[in-house]
Design a protein around this nucleic acid. Structure first.
Lengths: 219, 219
DNA sequence: TGTACATCAGTGAACGCGCGTTCACTGATGTAC
DNA sequence: TGTACATCAGTGAACGCGCGTTCACTGATGTAC
């Protein structure tokens, strides 16, 4: 049993350590100059390795990028889950949490909600995480009265996440509708702010965001 | 007078012709694979020229890109102005016009409202065009009653566009406030749709967009 | 109308760069007896 | 405890590619007398 219990041999531990340092450097590159600046050779240089050495850890640049995107999604899901667990699971709390998370690393936000990364096609993996985010939001909208709205949402089949848990299609149609507006409206303010498109104007992005959020939270 | 009247010598006309073909090819590249795919050598290849030949027409890749961004802004301004002139200058009409324009060339939309292009710093030129767009929207919001809102907008100095016309800071505070929501909310739906982030969900982007637009148009 | 000259579009070769990726290898770390 | 072997991290050189950009040039188009 001693063997099965500690699956992590020293070598395996080292391996994971290097893998995560590679990812850290990768994030530095992305944060500094966007996704297109992600370069295996550049990372190797930063780490004092030869470029070829990285191929022990990632089979290709695409694999690394895919994993980064996956991590970005998981970070957001985790952050929203934590906020919910801390009693900030209402729309107002989630809205503020989302903004903090986005400002913390704008490029990471765009990796999740920005224009598609050229060449990258999302795994089913990521679709489940995206659906999970919507579920969290929909839960926060649970107390909205269920008045059948305009037919914006049409029912569809639920997804399954990695552990076989059913995901997506939670809550009433009205709750889903509100969650959707939550996402699009806040994304509108946030993405324009992060892109610098509100900078030229005489408006305070934080106040604008809060105003939109208040309106949503009032049902 | 015969000389001053026709400024366009045949050579000059040819020159403009080639310049605009270069831009056309550039748009093809951007449409197909995003801004990062823009390549002078690639354009030359498409046109059957040598790469060096393009330097007769643009001094650098950056100059070409700058001009494309400028053109994108001008296209949007022109489209909105035309809609206004055709009696579709209300919020509902402008909203639909905006969506058509965006769907017509998503990459062009992202050049205007997307994440900043790496390496590119916007000219003052473009700031004036951006302000002009806001003016058009604010005009469409002129009939909203002027109830001083939350202090989202703080007054600032107006800009000047190329011809010295004053631009920006039109309309009442309430009108500006509404125009701002128009921009952020519709951008929220539109950019998520264009990025494919609504594709996995069971919602119709067109209906969602229309629903948000209707809400705005109702003041 | 013809000749001499200037302008300018476009070429082809080259420079230096950085990229992703492969491959044969060295040397250290771990494992089995 | 020591020896023989397997595993695996990392190296260095190389491949082929495409990029932006420069430069000396050829040849056609336009201009001036």
């Amino acid at each position: 049993m001693g063997e099965a219990a500690s699956t992590t041999t020293p070598r395996e531990r080292y391996r994971q350590q290097v893998r995560s340092e590679i990812k850290e450097r990768a994030w530095e590159q992305i944060t500094a100059a966007g996704t297109s600046a992600l370069s295996l050779n550049g990372i190797a240089r930063l780490m004092g390795l030869s470029g070829a050495g990285l191929y022990r850890y990632f089979t290709s640049r695409d694999e690394l990028l895919t994993e980064l995107i996956h991590d970005a999604y998981q970070s957001l899901v985790g952050t929203l889950r934590t906020a919910t667990a801390q009693g900030k699971g209402d729309l107002s709390g989630l809205g503020q949490t989302l903004r903090m998370w986005a400002l913390d690393d704008p490029q990471r936000y765009f990796l999740v909600y920005g224009p598609p990364v050229p060449g990258y096609r999302g795994a089913a993996d990521v679709a489940a995480l995206a659906a999970e985010i919507m579920d969290i939001l929909t839960d926060a909208c649970a107390d909205v009265p269920d008045v059948p709205d305009a037919p914006v949402i049409t029912p569809g089949a639920p997804l399954e996440d990695g552990s076989g848990r059913s995901v997506g299609r939670a809550g009433t149609a009205s709750a889903q509708r509100l969650a959707l507006s939550f996402r699009t409206r806040l994304h509108g303010v946030l993405s324009l702010e992060l892109s610098g498109h509100l900078a030229g104007m005489e408006c305070d992005p934080a106040l604008l965001y809060q105003a939109e959020l208040d309106l949503l939270a009032a049902h």
